[in-house]
Design a protein around this nucleic acid. Structure first.
Length: 465
RNA sequence: GUCCCCAUCGUCUAGCUGGCCAAGGACAGUGGAUUUUCGAUCCACCAACCGGAGUUCGAAUCUCCGUGGGGACACCA
């Protein structure tokens, strides 16, 4: 039995977006599931649009998601000699030929075909045939190389996601495999690479379905083994439309910035277009044991931020406090908020983590503990009522020597409200407002206990004069 | 336009070799319990097989047609 070898082959013309990340995840998981190898290959032959920043962005994204690769990254630009050698071979065998048709001619040809309601395709005018007289090659024009695609028959494969797919060769034309400047094109490089790298399963986006028959034909011409194909349907934006720069098609690193945990993103992505019965929450390890191609949905999936939020909240609750604190500290520092030792960030995080959906919200909650809060006059006027003020003044006095722990603080608060005949919210609300500037917080005694005593007395005294 | 693919609750989906489905789970939504506010948690509810033929004793599951959606048609990947 041969070892499974999969690959992720992004082109560095943009960052690693959510769709690419899922493709990478599935390829990676398939290799892991079967004890095979996962290869990273950067398809950078489009010199015009490829950038080093994009390469780095992809590497960073893979790293953040912890999608480790066993081989690579390979760069196609570094494999030029190999591609050219294979092109020479095809030329020599008559499986490829030179074509001198200019881009202008091609445009005109396609336009005319479209006008006639035909599928635009190369008409084979430079394709050598027995008994056919080719035009005289024009002076000073460097030709492109075209692959001689079979004219009859059909290409059929059993797609591991979509099932039986078939194309008539008559629908395909002779694609360009080398540009006029001699550089090979995408469909050709992919074929040579998948062949050389011994890829057994090509797992990629379904925008490549139409490339597959061409690639299979080249593979066959080379006498190479045709790998298995699994075409993943695309991911739609939150609004059901195609992802664009406008919405959703952002770098996966943006999810980091937005306060998502990588394990939440992985779990979400794993469940988007793939399922394992009713299981919703599972670890990467579990995913790697369960993952298969049989349970991938062939139709497009709409991204749902709310479900991601739910998962993120789940993983935040599970996360180690020190880890969360480190992340929140960095986020606060980025906002220019210096995190002191006084209220221990880890304690704040421990108290707040089960009520937030993202790390940024967790940072929002922690912030008032480190900055001077200025409750709005409206909130104060609303909460600091005439009946509450005397009780709060007394509470403040008692805070001066109470044991500084939540239970003792809570007991004192209860004692005061009892004495003044107040309901808990009557006292807790204004206290919250004075301390953190808002009414929604965890249990008030726990919040009070987080602060150093002096800070509480200072913040209360400011409003109770 | 041509070719290819897809089609179950608002969303992600279970359903795969037809009966166990008067369609299950999860997110969201609604209502309730709990609560020191919010949140978290627990409980309940709401909600779908695109349409039409056909095959069959029986179809969400198979076939065909239609409709809708998406993708691809580059010297881009």
């Amino acid at each position: 039995m041969t070892t499974i070898r999969t690959r992720f082959a992004p082109s560095p013309t943009g960052y690693l977006h959510i769709g690419g990340a899922r493709t990478a995840l599935f390829s990676w998981a398939y290799a892991r599931r079967h004890g095979g190898q996962f290869i990273l290959r950067v398809e950078d032959t489009d010199v015009e649009r490829s950038t080093p920043e994009a390469v780095q962005g992809i590497l960073d994204g893979m790293d953040w998601l912890a999608l480790n690769y066993d081989e690579g990254p390979f760069y196609q630009m570094q494999r030029m000699d190999r591609y050219k050698a294979v092109i020479r071979q095809l030329l020599a065998e008559g499986a490829a030929y030179y074509c001198y048709t200019s881009p202008e001619e091609l445009d005109a040809m396609r336009e005319a075909q479209r006008a006639r309601g035909e599928k635009p395709r190369y008409d084979g005018r430079w394709r050598p045939e027995p008994g056919k007289t080719l035009p005289q090659p024009p002076e000073g024009v460097s030709p492109v190389v075209r692959f001689r695609n079979p004219e009859t028959g059909s290409v059929i494969w059993k797609d591991l996601v979509k099932g039986h797919i078939s194309f008539e060769n008559a629908e395909l034309d002779d694609l360009i495999i080398a540009r006029a400047d001699g550089t090979p094109t995408y469909n050709f490089c992919v074929v040579v690479d998948d062949w050389d790298m011994g890829i057994t399963h090509v797992i990629r986006g379904d925008d490549h379905v139409n490339n597959t028959p061409r690639q299979i034909n080249i593979l066959k011409a080379l006498g190479a083994t045709v790998p298995q194909y699994a075409h993943l349907s695309m991911i739609l934006g939150d609004d059901g439309t195609k992802l664009s720069k406008r919405h959703g098609a952002v770098s996966v690193m943006q999810y980091d910035d937005n306060g998502y945990l990588p394990e939440a993103v992985i779990n979400y992505l794993a469940r988007l277009g793939w399922s394992h019965g009713d299981d919703e929450i599972f670890s990467v390890e579990q995913f790697c044991q369960w993952f298969d191609l049989d349970h991938i949905t062939p139709s497009a999936a709409q991204f749902n931020t709310e479900k991601l939020n739910w998962l993120n909240q789940h993983y935040i609750k599970l996360a180690d406090n020190a880890r969360l604190a480190a992340s929140v500290r960095a986020r606060l520092q980025a906002r220019g908020v210096a995190v002191s030792d006084a209220p221990a960030l880890e304690a704040i995080v421990a108290l707040y983590k089960e009520r937030v959906t993202t790390l940024n919200v967790l940072a929002d909650e922690a912030e008032p503990f480190y900055i001077d809060v200025h409750p709005s006059a409206e909130l104060l006027g609303e909460q600091l009522t005439a009946e509450a003020t005397p009780a709060l003044r007394e509470l403040m006095e008692r805070f001066k020597d109470v044991t500084w722990e939540a239970p003792a603080i809570g007991a004192t608060i209860k004692e005061i409200i009892g004495k003044h005949g107040l309901k808990m919210p009557k006292l807790a609300m204004p206290l919250r407002v004075m301390l953190v500037g808002q009414t929604h917080t965890p249990s008030v005694d726990a919040v009070v206990a987080l602060f150093p005593r002096e800070v509480v007395l200072e913040r209360m005294g400011r409003h109770l004069g």
